[in-house]
């Protein structure tokens, strides 16, 4: 399994926005191997949906519930029609609900809109450059950070608090974390802060600050440092990753921005640790 599977699943589940969906479909058209994997995923889903047992509530359970509820209410505890396949109507209802789901809702929030625009403009920002054979030295941690970064690009809310105002973002994070990450808007230096969210890395809650640099989105993961680790710079699945420990905090910078640009942001952010 790798990140491609997350994307394929999200497409299958109708959870991608229009731009990301289009970009992925273009990629499927160009990559037969990926298309085969998508077909396999879809076949699996069809088989599961068609075959897996949907257990209907037994009459004995309904009888027990009638004792909890008044007579007028318990009339509603009618026998199930689910045993014979009642899911036709359920499926139709789910489809209607999906149709009714407003696209606008998926795009709500200025930060999210910005990211969607980036996805539309630059599918490369998703790390979908083909023919990549970058010899990459990976640690599980860096790989996980890259997964978190790409996941964040494809979900509806990559940012839980969308603000360029560090005085909004910092209290939001410190109210939710047991450490305080440095939060600073670096728009004057060319790295505007888009917002932040919480994420989970190696089972620990991390702050994820989201910056933009030109057409690139940069995720900065921050969590309390375990042991002091040496600085590391890696390429993981086409993303540049810089890990650095400073002031008791472990930082991980992830982006498809070039290493020098990423380094420049790291040099601006990490000295603020613990201040």
């Amino acid at each position: 399994m790798n990140d491609d599977d997350l994307w394929l699943d999200a497409l299958l589940d109708d959870e991608l926005d229009a731009a990301a969906s289009l970009a992925l479909q273009r990629r499927l058209a160009a990559e037969p191997a990926l298309q085969r994997r998508f077909d396999e995923r879809r076949a699996l889903r069809e088989a599961v949906r068609a075959q897996a047992t949907r257990h209907a509530a037994p009459d004995a359970l309904r009888a027990r519930l009638t004792q909890m509820l008044p007579p007028s209410a318990s009339e509603r505890v009618a026998p199930s029609s689910r045993a014979s396949d009642a899911r036709g109507s359920m499926t139709a209802r789910a489809r209607l609900a999906r149709l009714a789901r407003p696209w606008a809702a998926a795009l709500a929030g200025a930060g999210v809109a910005t990211l969607c625009t980036l996805l539309a403009v630059d599918p490369g920002a998703l790390g979908w450059r083909r023919g990549e054979t970058i010899a990459s030295q990976q640690t599980a941690e860096a790989s996980e950070a890259v997964s978190a970064h790409t996941r964040a690009l494809l979900v509806e809310r990559p940012i839980e608090v969308a603000s360029s105002d560090q005085h909004t973002v910092r209290p939001w994070l410190s109210a939710r974390l047991n450490f305080v990450p440095p939060v600073v808007d670096l728009a004057p230096q060319g790295y505007p802060l888009l917002g932040a969210r919480r994420d989970v890395l190696s089972g620990e809650t991390a702050a994820a600050l989201v910056y933009r640099h030109g057409a690139h989105v940069i995720s900065v993961f921050v969590k309390p440092a375990g042991a002091d680790a040496a600085e590391a710079t890696r390429v993981v699945r086409g993303f540049n990753v810089i890990e650095r420990t400073q002031g008791g905090l472990a930082f991980c910078f992830v982006s498809d921005a070039n290493p020098r640009e990423l380094q420049a942001l790291a040099d601006l952010v990490t000295p603020l640790a613990g201040k």
């Binding site: 399994m1 599977d5 997350l6 699943d9 999200a10 589940d13 396999e40 995923r41 699996l44 889903r45 599961v48 997964s147 978190a148 996941r151 964040a152 979900v155 509806e156 809310r157 919480r198 994420d199 989970v200």
Partner: peptide, 19 residues
């Protein structure tokens, strides 16, 4: 009770194991 990203990776892993 988990973040959406975790839902995505669990679902994906679950499907992978099923396959």
């Amino acid at each position: 009770g988990v973040p959406i990203g975790t839902v995505m990776s669990r679902l994906s892993r679950g499907r992978h194991l099923l396959a």
